[in-house]
């Protein structure tokens, strides 16, 4: 094991992974990763393509369950509770640990319905008035309310890419999650839309534990307070973002972030 980290453990972790290994059939994609994710900071996962950062992110709300050949070993806890325990309700888990994907994927329904869908199936609203409150609150938190309040019944897919992505964040927020996982949420967006998402991430910090996978190192530097560098299935280094970007401990981290990789 070449894994070495700084600040591995944090106080009151929201989620903890211990010696997590992921296999796709015979191939091992994650080689024993241990990491804590806290409420107080945004955690960024960086690393070259194929390093396992997205695979690892997807273990945090059991999205890998949908991949038939995937097998996860080790322990991952949410508030101390093992999320891979047989008693864990996966639907409930994914409400608590929400996810935002690379390409904005709003439902082909109205803006209002995109937000209302989750709360409705989870029974979070007592009636129409209740639901209106949830929709407005979620869209406000997603920084989208002012732009869409007069056309809530237009289709979500008619929005711009950046607005669609904020709609997806609003949709994740609507079911009152505790953790939000973001898998390259800005890679399909222009710089202005990206800046709006980054500002949103900043505003959401503290209210939710946020983990973001990004190929854009500047983005990791801008939005996160903790950065984890993955390489070939190892967590090579995990530390305070400003330390990682000014004085990384590991040669592999340094080569990657200074553009000397490969």
């Amino acid at each position: 094991m070449t894994q070495e980290q700084t600040n591995l453990t944090i106080d009151n972790p929201k989620m903890s992974a211990r010696d997590v290994k992921v296999f796709y059939g015979e191939k091992q994609a994650i080689k024993g990763v241990s990491i804590d994710v806290g409420m107080d900071h945004v955690t960024a996962f960086i690393g070259p393509s194929g390093c396992g950062k997205s695979t690892f992110l997807r273990t945090l709300n059991r999205m890998n369950d949908t991949v038939a050949s995937a097998r996860v070993e080790g322990e991952i806890t949410l508030d101390g509770e093992n999320i891979y325990a047989p008693s864990m309700d996966v639907v409930q888990l994914r409400a608590r640990v929400g996810m935002v994907f690379q390409k904005p994927n709003p439902f082909p329904k109205s803006i209002y319905e995109n937000i209302a869908y989750g709360p409705r199936i989870h029974g979070l609203a007592a009636g129409k008035a209740d639901m209106d409150v949830i929709v407005e609150k979620s869209l406000r938190r997603a920084g989208l309310w002012d732009e869409v309040k007069d056309r809530l019944h237009d289709s979500g897919t008619a929005l711009s890419g950046g607005q669609q992505q904020r709609l997806c964040i609003g949709r994740a927020i609507a079911v009152e999650p505790e953790v939000i996982l973001m898998d390259e949420p800005c890679s399909a967006l222009d710089p202005i839309a990206t800046a709006k998402i980054e500002e949103l991430i900043h505003e959401l910090r503290g209210r939710y534990a946020i983990v973001i996978v990004t190929h854009n190192m500047q983005q990791a530097a801008r939005v996160s307070q903790r950065t984890a560098f993955f390489h070939l299935g190892d967590l090579v280094e995990y530390g305070v973002t400003s330390d990682i970007f000014t004085n990384p401990r590991q040669e592999r981290t340094k080569d990657y972030i200074t553009g000397r990789y490969g």
Binding site: Q218, F245, T246, N247, I257, T258
Partner: peptide
């Protein structure tokens, strides 16, 4: 170039 780490230093 947005230098990082030892390059930045």
């Amino acid at each position: 170039r947005a230098p990082m780490a030892n390059d930045l230093r």
